[in-house]
């Protein structure tokens, strides 16, 4: 009698497994396709500013030692609006974008902080991007050298123009190849975005 009961339980478990196996990837509640949240550049701020300068690594510093050539840092904050067009909350999983001064790409920023965005609402996120004259000189040289040569502008002149002009945003700061990954907890979607600041600036 006990053996029969055990056998019956086992059979039920096997049958339940079989039934579930027909729906291996079906989530607990079937969700409609998630609409991609819309990301737009609300603004760019100079978060911290140290002017324009460059120091060769051979220079003797007042304190400590120089690890390499160093240049003025520039901390820009990018404020992004993220609008969730879905009637349910979605979670931002990660976000990345490239920053170009005029047409020269200088930095790519990744942000891994997550947040939930309520249904039909807009959240704001602030992402900092750090630049410095020494690294930007290398980036400009490695990727934009021929472009600058064509413009007949030296990399140093171009950097000085940007580092001094950023206080008034006298040139366009572009956000390109922006992508962000979202999930509703069941389904995922990728949004792409771009922007330019000041908004009136164009190519």
């Amino acid at each position: 009698m006990v053996c029969n009961k055990i056998a019956l339980y086992c059979m039920r478990i096997v049958l339940a497994f079989t039934a579930l196996s027909f729906f291996p990837a079906t989530p607990i509640h079937s969700a409609p396709a998630i609409k991609a949240p819309v990301i737009s550049l609300a603004g760019v701020e100079v978060a911290h500013y140290w002017g324009y300068w460059f120091v060769d690594k051979k220079t003797e510093p007042t304190k400590g030692k120089l690890p390499a050539n160093v240049g003025a840092p520039l901390d820009l904050a990018f404020v992004l609006n993220i609008k969730n067009p879905n009637p349910y909350p979605v979670q931002l999983e990660e976000l990345k974008f490239t920053v170009a001064f005029e047409d020269f790409e200088l930095n790519t920023v990744n942000a891994y902080e997550t947040m939930w965005i309520p249904g039909d609402k807009t959240n704001q996120v602030r992402v900092h991007a750090m630049f410095d004259v020494a690294t930007s000189f290398l980036s400009l040289g490695a990727t934009g050298g021929f472009q600058l040569q064509k413009k007949q502008v030296s990399a140093w002149d171009q950097l000085e123009k940007w580092w001094t002009g950023i206080q008034t945003f006298s040139f366009p700061v572009r956000v390109t190849n922006g992508t962000a990954r979202f999930t509703s907890g069941v389904k995922g979607v990728i949004s792409s975005f771009e922007g330019v600041y000041p908004p009136k600036a164009s190519k």
Binding site: A25, T98, E105, N107, T135, L138, S139, T143
Partner: peptide
């Protein structure tokens, strides 16, 4: 199962701004 919560963390160091960013990006 496809929705297992366990994750394996991997770090990736890349040059997207420096002297080798022409190939690094």
């Amino acid at each position: 199962t496809p929705y297992a919560a366990e994750e394996i963390v991997i770090g990736s160091l890349n040059d997207m701004t420096g002297a080798t960013s022409d190939v690094g990006k």
